[in-house]
Design a binder for these strands. Sequence first.
DNA 1: ACCTGAACACCGTTCAAGT
DNA 2: ACCTGAACACCGTTCAAGT
Lengths: 196, 196
Amino acid sequence: MTEARPVRPGPRRTLSEQVILDAALALLAELGADRVTIRGIAARAGIAPNAVYTYFPDKAAVLHGLAEQLLGRVHDKQAADSALPWRDRVHTVARDLRNELLAHPGSVHLLLGNSLDGQNARAIGAAMLVILADAGLAPDAAARAAHLFNVYLLGSVALETTDQVRATDQFLWGLDRLLDGLVPCAVTPRDHPGSG
Amino acid sequence: MTEARPVRPGPRRTLSEQVILDAALALLAELGADRVTIRGIAARAGIAPNAVYTYFPDKAAVLHGLAEQLLGRVHDKQAADSALPWRDRVHTVARDLRNELLAHPGSVHLLLGNSLDGQNARAIGAAMLVILADAGLAPDAAARAAHLFNVYLLGSVALETTDQVRATDQFLWGLDRLLDGLVPCAVTPRDHPGSG
DNA sequence: ACCTGAACACCGTTCAAGT
DNA sequence: ACCTGAACACCGTTCAAGT
């Protein structure tokens, strides 16, 4: 017989939070938001429904993780390029986020229903703050403006999703009105801080 | 025995759509959005759950009617007063709608998830168009601006609801930035059209 | 036309048990 | 620690039947 070293009871890590979130994301992309159920996720991951509760306290926690998962798919290199005009950088972030949200119908309501306090959410918010600081906004104004940006992005896509229309013109028009309203807030406007 | 005149089969109109929507609204106000269920509505109305389907094809239709019901509770007299500055009139509409939505947590997601094409929704939208026209916006710009207003209002309240904060300062600040961005769109600005 | 009881096919979640 | 089968308390919706 083999040596009787203390065998750990049961498999140690055949699953993980990531496996569950991957299954949830696949379900969201293929079947829509209303099909993202605990039982559906478990079935796709090949486990029993209640096994999910080993990793997440409840469904809300799974959806919160799923929202974070979605934001992680957006990486903006152009947004970080401080040599570009700040309005263009905002446009880039807005377009990329909007496209990601429109690609997964229902994901907007996911973001609107969960606090955007995860790692990826904070990263995007921080990138936005940098852009707005480069635009000349004071820290508190930049924070308010970043929130305003979130409101506009999520609100726009939510209405686009329910009304079944892709109104890119309207989206960019509203974004520009919003940026126009922010311009007077810039105390030290500088388009190319790298050259100053 | 009494005369055998053709008695109509069953009670003719003991219920109505309005009774069901009233029950739904009461449930929303008292127990929250997630407790607005077909079975709950029926119980409060004193009928069997499937009786609801005599008046509405499915739950989505009930919620659509409920969204309309909510908007009907907002009546703005000040918004119609063309003697007031247009920014004040917008502020009034925004404040009243926001207060109504915050009073019923979950109602925001109700509005965001249903097309705002009902009678009350159109009335509010029309009032907004009048204000924006008085502000000097051309019809197409006014239409875009009205949509922008919807996006901002619903997006703001949605984020306020999920983050459990009532940030009135932030709300008004963002609204003003938005209105600032609209000012250049006014081709024929006139504050008091009644005096012209 | 309007309402009912009963059933169907689902949910999220919990519990006791097994490794 | 991790996973399972079974159950509980719900859902929305449909169907056949009654008035």
